[in-house]
Simulated scan of single mutants.
Amino acid sequence: MPHTASTHAHHDQLSRLLDLDAIIHRSVTERAVRALARHARKADVTTVLDIGAGTGAGLFALATEFEDAELVAIDLDERMLDDIRGRAGRQGLGGRITSLRADVGERLFDAGDADVIWSSNALHEVPDPALALANMFRSLRRGGVLAIVEMVAPPLVLPSEHASLETLLRLAAGADRNAPDWTTDITAAGFELLETRTLTSGQRLAADGPGGAYAALELRRLAQHAQPELSDESARSIREIIADLSGEHRLIERVHVRGARALWIARRP
């Protein structure tokens, strides 16, 4: 696919949204990593795979938790992997973190053998999740631990006085569908399910900081999907809020970011 200006703009917007998501939901990621670590013997963990690494939020939390392990960032987006390699170098982790451009949904997927596999907000993007989970099973050593994380639904970001408009936007964008439940798929792939949980977060954040920037990007993303279903008046109101969060801050001084992530932890017998 040619790298057009719109392709780069989409990448930059997605990368920025993921970077802000990592900041806003850092505590959720860290809680998920700690839950995973409770099922793994740290002394035995030498290799960790992050499948669908994105901007590396999970990867760097894993690097802190498993301080003696080597980590591999796996993604299809070479620019994301470039960003991870640069960040790893700046943090002095270049010797521990490598990258691999690969598709876990391909039959010839080969990332070597690992003691831990982490995959966050990625499995739902794969056309054949059963094949992806089979590849993860094959990539784990016996006794290795798998963690799958999915966003339960796009986060709510606006304060209560704008709740009706946000609800309308989410309905128009089809954003209130629940995340898939991977429980049956994980066990069908041969894993022993160890734990499932839902990790929630709720934060009131200043609109002139990362919280406001995150809310603006999330609303813009939803608005792009919702546009054909919105009335002119609703579309105009949403544009005004996005513009306000993007720099004016007359309408909204604080955002209220609420969300939930589903976590599955399993072991290869």
Rank of each mutant, 00 (worst) to 15 (best):
A260H: 09
E240D: 15
L165T: 02
G209Q: 15
D77G: 00
G105F: 09
A215C: 03
P228L: 12
S119A: 03
H225Y: 11
T7K: 09
L168I: 07
K42E: 14
A243M: 04
G211Y: 08
R170H: 02
A223V: 01
G143M: 03
T198N: 11
A134P: 00
T64M: 07
V48A: 03
G54D: 01
S120P: 01
R26Q: 15
W118R: 03
S231M: 09
G247D: 11
S6E: 15
T167R: 15
A43F: 02
I252T: 09
P2W: 08
N121S: 13
S120K: 11
G92T: 13
V149Y: 04
G211E: 10
L36F: 02
D19V: 11
P2V: 13
A226N: 10
I117F: 06
F137E: 13
D244I: 05
N178C: 04
G92N: 09
G112M: 10
Q224K: 13
G94S: 12
I117V: 13
D82L: 05
L123D: 00
I265G: 01
A173W: 02
A175C: 08
R38M: 10
L17Y: 02
T4W: 06
A266Y: 10
D244F: 06
L146F: 09
L93K: 10
Q224Y: 04
T183N: 05
R34M: 05
S27C: 04
G209D: 15
T196Q: 03
H39V: 02
L59M: 02
S164M: 11
G58C: 09
A216N: 02
A134S: 15
L245W: 06
L133C: 05
A69G: 07
R101K: 15
G174K: 09
R236G: 07
G56D: 11
S234T: 06
A175F: 09
R177W: 06
G89T: 14
G58D: 12
A111I: 12
R85P: 00
A88I: 08
Q227M: 11
L217V: 06
M1C: 01
A175P: 01
R239L: 08
A215M: 01
D208Q: 12
A130D: 14
L49D: 02
D103E: 07
T187N: 04
P180Q: 04
A63E: 13
A206M: 02
R101V: 13
A173R: 12
A111S: 14
